[in-house]
Design a protein around this nucleic acid. Sequence first.
DNA 1: TCCAATTGAATTGCGCGCAACTGAATTGGC
DNA 2: GCCAATTCAGTTGCGCGCAATTCAATTGGA
Lengths: 145, 145
Amino acid sequence: MSTEDLLRLDLQLCFPLYAASRAMVQAYTPLLAKLGLTYPQYLVMLVLWETDGVTVKELGEKLYLDSGTLTPLLKRLETLGMLRRERSREDARSVTASLTPQGKALRRKAAAIPEAIACRTGLTLEELSRMRRDVQRLFEKLSKQ
Amino acid sequence: MSTEDLLRLDLQLCFPLYAASRAMVQAYTPLLAKLGLTYPQYLVMLVLWETDGVTVKELGEKLYLDSGTLTPLLKRLETLGMLRRERSREDARSVTASLTPQGKALRRKAAAIPEAIACRTGLTLEELSRMRRDVQRLFEKLSKQ
DNA sequence: TCCAATTGAATTGCGCGCAACTGAATTGGC
DNA sequence: GCCAATTCAGTTGCGCGCAATTCAATTGGA
């Protein structure tokens, strides 16, 4: 392939990835709007529904986001009444986010979302699983070093 | 799979996609910094290097971005001296972006980027090609309707 | 030839992402 | 026990993305 070709938009992997990621968020948006959440806020809630009471640092490690993104996002979720933020007693540098009853209750309303999205992709569960694994591997290659 | 499982972060396709897309942009960032470009600005340049003199509308159709994103982005590229923006004479509603000599010249410096990124993924050209096709198909499914 | 509907770009407002920095708390080497 | 180095959250600033709106130019039907 020539240098000419290598710069062609339709031959890049980055562009479909970028477009698909945005289209995925757009697919979630109307479903999440019913819960009053944005997509990144939904990711934080997924973590908290699995493991309540996590620090900003732990959230950052799971979601690959830093405090510059998470601090204002968590403040918004706190304002919405989904969680409480409080300084850790053991280590006053860290802040822990814990679900309110309302935040916990939202889980039931979110339960229908994954299947709705899976349907939208038109892929079988096996295809979805393989794709997730492949994209995950790509992420790991790109993120290390 | 239970509803419990369906909400697990590590079983979603959306999250690897979101993380990989951001990691891909991060991989480009230091390479593009040498050209003075951000990743979305680079995408606009890719379009212009293929087809010089496109309207905001055409750019939006190729990149799936709207004027709210493109107008300020194009103004920044104009300030950088990469392109000129001018009202079309045939239809005064539309605005055309055309490369300056400096914008055209930047292509040569960008020529090395695609291969550098391809190496970073650690995938063969066949694997990259298959992945691009799969992600492209996912995008098409998600974006229609 | 009107003029209502449509189109295209620009603007506004908001929520990310992220780099760079700040400041307080903790740790670890001596 | 001291203090330099590190860690953690928060802040600032900027560039997207995108919804919603505005406004001017064009189109198309009566």
